[in-house]
Amino acid sequence: MRKKIVAGNWKMHKNAAQTAELLNELVAKLPADTTAQVIVAPTFVNLAAAVSQLEGKAITVAAQNVHQAEGGAFTGEITADMLTSVGVNTVILGHSERRAIFHESDALIAEKVNTALKHDMTVIFCFGEELKDRQDKQHFNIVENQLRDGLFQIEKGSWSKVVLAYEPVWAIGTGETASPEQAQEMHEFIRETVRKVFGAEVADEVSILYGGSVKPENAVEIFSKPDVDGGLIGGAALKADDFLAIVKAAV
């Protein structure tokens, strides 16, 4: 049975006090019978405090990025060892903002994936097409290429540490959302692409999240699709009630 997962990517939001306040609210309001795995990804400077605050709670802390090197003269960067040393064992890689704003290539993301897996971290691997790709009917090719070039170098046994997050770039922070049917169509294609390379067992077990303007109003319908296993949530993750409503939808 695949895990249902709802992960909140806080991006560059929330200072230390605001982080603690939101985490307190999430802990207080998270229903005891929640079956989905809940993940939050605060900023780097608040990760250690978040891990401490959530110790023994049913919420996992993830980082939003990691450097591919083990150390060195890379001012402003963070290593996998630094993350795991403060109790962060999950990392988001390949997010569309990292690809577009920071010019991260598939090859670079592949290096980051390898480094994270080497440190036994769980990788939330993000990928997805831009609006022009979909308009040109190239969205399946783009997604297949991003998977192949950024992730398919890993060994079959490493898939237990991988979560896929499909995020159509045209639906991130725009208010636009892929229809539930569009999301299912792509998720089914993703699962079949994994199956062709790594076999049915891996494909059937890997969780595939949808990311792109998921809100309490549309989460139930999107998450009801057979190949959608939860969501990678942006803006709605910054409000406890909205985020928990989305968590509740992932059953």
Rank of each mutant, 00 (worst) to 15 (best):
Leu47Tyr: 01
Val228Gln: 02
Glu176Asn: 15
Asp227Cys: 15
Met186Pro: 04
Ile142Glu: 08
Ala165Asp: 06
His103Ala: 12
Gly173Ser: 05
Ala41Ile: 02
Arg195Val: 11
Phe44Asn: 05
Leu26Asn: 01
Val220Asn: 07
Glu111Gly: 13
Lys215Arg: 12
Gln138Arg: 13
Gln53Phe: 09
Ala245Gly: 09
Gly212Tyr: 01
Leu244Lys: 09
Gly235Asp: 02
Asp81Gln: 14
Ser179Trp: 13
Ile142Leu: 13
Lys4Met: 08
Arg98Pro: 10
Gln68Pro: 00
Thr60Tyr: 15
His13Glu: 09
Asp33Thr: 10
Arg98Glu: 10
Thr43Trp: 10
Asp241His: 11
Phe44Ser: 09
Arg134Ile: 03
His13Val: 04
Lys239His: 10
Glu167Ile: 08
Phe223His: 04
Asp204Ala: 15
Ala28Thr: 11
Ala50Gly: 06
Ala165Pro: 10
Gln53His: 15
Ser85Tyr: 15
Thr34Asp: 03
Val123Gln: 03
Gly234Ile: 04
Val194Phe: 10
Met12Val: 12
Pro168Trp: 12
Phe125Trp: 02
Val228Pro: 03
Ala250Lys: 08
Leu232Asn: 03
Pro180Ser: 04
Ile154Thr: 09
Glu70Leu: 14
Gly211Leu: 12
Gly175Ser: 05
Ser179Arg: 11
Ile39Gln: 01
Thr115Cys: 14
Val163Tyr: 12
Thr115Phe: 06
Gln18Asn: 12
Ala17His: 14
Phe102Lys: 03
Asp120Ile: 13
Thr43Gly: 14
Gln153His: 14
Asn46Glu: 07
Gly157Glu: 15
Thr177Glu: 01
His95Ser: 06
Tyr166Cys: 09
Glu176Lys: 15
Asp106Gln: 06
Val66Leu: 13
Lys29Phe: 00
Val6Ala: 03
Val38Arg: 04
Ala240Thr: 06
Val162His: 07
Met186Leu: 13
